[in-house]
Amino acid sequence: MTHDTQAAEAGHAPASAAWPIRLDGVSVTYPNGTTALRDVSLDIDAGEMVSIVGLSGSGKSTLIRTINGLVPVTAGTVTVGPHTVSGLHGRRLREVRGHVGMIFQGFNLATRVDVYRNTLVGRFARAGRLRTLLGVTSARDREVALTALDTVGMLDKVWSRAAALSGGQQQRVAIARALSQEPSIMLADEPVASLDPPTAHAVMSELERINAERHLTVLVNLHLMDLARQYTRRMIGLRDGELVYDGPAAEATEADFEQIYGRRIRPQDRLGDRT
């Protein structure tokens, strides 16, 4: 804590200060010839919570994966905080990824491993090779991981195997894993698409709270219009890899959504209100 204050006083940003994201003319064409993104430019401020809305196949997963370099861009540049992600490789790319937390639709936990060590993966990803191999943790690693679990309300399940948890609980652990990286950006790729409505609202609230309390930049992929309106201020619409909407989420009209979806609104485009 004192270290962070000192760093801030010395003019350095603390480890977990939010980062802005900038995409400049980004296009992605996969090796099989599919073009997933066409000339997308975006500016997201540090600490913003933004939703990316579009049907499946619209390129929103690709967009979010260009930000941590899981998908390399074909053209254009991606900048997060002080780093240009596009063109980075190997150790330096992994270094940037360490500052970017990510959660997935399928949770992606090691299901046979307990919650504690799943959360520690966020620490091990950047630890030395030998410490990673042997699973040696520092007091700080343990503190950060347990605090992250406490934040998402999963501390009481710390010794449970991930496979024994419900979907919503697994996603909370996945959030804790990402938080234990002490990230500057949080990416969420369809985080609630595998969850039932009440659980989906709970997980979205969790992301909202993390954005508010930790001042992280949060970017979340959604395909449901009401979740985007309810939890995010700004919404980005993608259709066929092109940016077709960028504006306040709350004021987006049915017509705007029909334009993003490229068809009429259907009942399944809404999740339903919080219960």
Partner: peptide, 21 residues
């Protein structure tokens, strides 16, 4: 295994990938 994706996304190298995913 999605866990491998997660380790990669968190900045993990080969060692972390093998050991934790």
């Amino acid at each position: 295994d999605g866990a491998a994706d997660a380790v990669r996304a968190a900045g993990g190298g080969r060692t972390a990938l093998v050991r934790w995913a």
